[in-house]
Design a protein around this nucleic acid. Structure first.
Lengths: 201, 201
DNA sequence: GTCTATACCATGATAGAC
DNA sequence: GTCTATCATGGTATAGAC
């Protein structure tokens, strides 16, 4: 934990620069995915030379990891900001809605599935794994509470519900619907929330 | 349309070889995706030299297109084989179940989303696009029938249901559940069918 | 710490002998 | 049609001047 303290101008400048880099990576990761994202593109988007990237982050993997960790931190922040007074199912709904909104604004890299190179690098990143576990636990508790309240089917194991919610935040049907251009972002989010929690039938 | 006729031994041999190539591509496409699949791997899996691949298919894109087209043809074949006597919703359920089973056996390349290089090549492939449209129409009709029968929510546009079903056949939660190793393939398919058609609640 | 220039490597694609 | 050997490109990463 860093002690909140006045930072020198140079340190502040460094943080701003690195934040801009992570912003660019986040967007490119969401748009093209890890493998198709090139360091040239990142450098061009930030407006610095490619070699300068490597002064801040030792590798492409580290860069992606930084973006994923910041995303997880934001998510954890949102989840913790929710009032415990509202029903668990409403909290879960709000979380998925939040994730989809972030994504529609171009800010949600799809989670690493089996097929990506990135995965191997991330599972060896303790900071990343730790935050994933934190989030899993928070959401897992919410899911079990929602089950007790009868708002989620009791015959579904908690992990199944958890993975389903993760998967919905990356659901490709959002992209397809957006490409059609026939519905607003809000409508698309509503459709997905409906099919996720209520099903097609 | 080819006239069913005796083929020379050489022609048969060629077809068998090309089928083996498409088999390998199909598996690699499912396992790693288009971008991470290399022509060296394909050649190694088939057991021929890389240059020989290019005698059969002019490019990596053409190879992938052949695999996608064969997959679509198989899917169309299955859909058309279903009896029109059973309710539309049961047919849709069976189709998703079939797709998931094919996938669990390692045979379902994930559909090209926005981020892949493959997409641009495929949308210019008339044969591929034609078959996609055929499948869209068949499934669209089934969905509208199911709506009339009250088995699918009337407030969901048909395209939303269609894309949702496509998305479920590629759902990453299947991979996550499979990685856990705690459930059988049959159980995983059942979970996904349940969450898709009945929802979490 | 930023730049230009480059090393080094993997990959898609091809040439040419058999 | 299959092979071995090779090319051209584009990618990550680094060296060295300022």
């Amino acid at each position: 934990m860093t002690v909140p303290q006045k930072l020198s101008f140079k340190q502040q400048q460094l943080i701003v620069r690195e934040d801009a880099i992570v912003d660019a990576v986040n967007g490119l990761l969401a748009k093209k995915g890890y493998d198709l994202m090139t360091m040239d593109e990142v450098a061009a988007e930030v407006g610095i030379a490619k070699a300068s990237l490597y002064k801040h982050f030792p590798s492409k993997e580290a860069l992606a990891a930084a973006a994923m960790i910041r995303l997880l931190e934001n998510t954890l922040g949102y989840v913790r900001s929710l009032s415990a007074d509202i029903p668990a199912i409403a909290q879960l709904r709000a979380i998925l809605q939040w994730a989809l909104q972030v994504r529609m604004q171009g800010g949600l890299p799809t989670l690493p599935a089996e097929n990506t190179t990135l995965r191997d690098g991330l599972i060896n990143n303790m900071k990343y794994v730790g935050k994933v576990l934190d989030l899993n636990e928070l959401l897992g508790d919410l899911i079990e509470q929602a089950k007790k309240e009868g708002a989620i089917r009791a015959d579904l194991p908690t992990e199944v519900v958890l993975f389903t919610i993760y998967a919905r935040s990356c659901d490709p049907s959002v992209d397809y619907l957006k490409m059609m251009g026939q519905y607003t972002d809000v409508q698309i989010v509503d459709f997905l929330l409906l099919t996720c929690f209520n099903g097609l039938g």
